[in-house]
Amino acid sequence: MQKGFGCHEYNLFSSEETVDGMQPLFWSGVMIHDSEPIGFWKAKSSRYANLNSAIKAFEELKGIAPYEFRAKFGCDCREALAGGDHDGTA
């Protein structure tokens, strides 16, 4: 994300859901800025939910041009970093 698109506001989120007496189900996704999650995945293990959601998000972003990425997700990270540090120093 940082290398290809210059974006630093993304994260991997996960949660767990259980139904009475059933094995827990873990779900995970990738959030870019405040957009809808991409790469959403459910699995019986948090490890595999996280891994597969990251892989799926990568597949969804593969081939997209940086300007398309910025437009789709409202990303202005590269421009914010170009002016210096966030604390106002150069």
Rank of each mutant, 00 (worst) to 15 (best):
17 E>F: 01
55 I>S: 13
41 W>N: 04
13 F>P: 00
35 S>A: 15
15 S>D: 11
3 K>E: 09
47 R>V: 15
61 L>C: 10
58 F>A: 15
55 I>A: 13
75 C>I: 03
30 V>L: 15
8 H>V: 12
28 S>K: 02
89 T>C: 05
72 K>T: 14
27 W>P: 00
6 G>W: 01
46 S>V: 09
66 P>Y: 03
60 E>P: 00
4 G>R: 13
19 V>Y: 08
88 G>F: 06
3 K>W: 02
83 G>H: 10
47 R>P: 01
80 A>V: 05
34 D>P: 00
12 L>V: 15
9 E>P: 00
64 I>N: 06
4 G>L: 09
41 W>Q: 12
35 S>Y: 03
18 T>L: 07
87 D>H: 14
16 E>Q: 12
30 V>K: 01
4 G>E: 12
47 R>T: 15
19 V>I: 09
4 G>Y: 01
15 S>W: 05
33 H>S: 04
65 A>G: 10
64 I>M: 15
87 D>W: 13
29 G>M: 02
13 F>D: 09
80 A>Y: 03
64 I>G: 11
20 D>S: 05
62 K>F: 12
87 D>E: 13
30 V>M: 14
53 S>Y: 08
87 D>K: 13
6 G>Y: 01
46 S>M: 10
85 D>Q: 07
8 H>R: 10
54 A>M: 15
71 A>Y: 06
19 V>C: 05
11 N>A: 04
15 S>L: 04
2 Q>N: 07
87 D>L: 14
8 H>M: 02
89 T>W: 04
71 A>D: 15
15 S>H: 08
49 A>W: 10
52 N>M: 13
61 L>R: 04
78 R>M: 08
24 P>R: 03
45 S>Y: 12
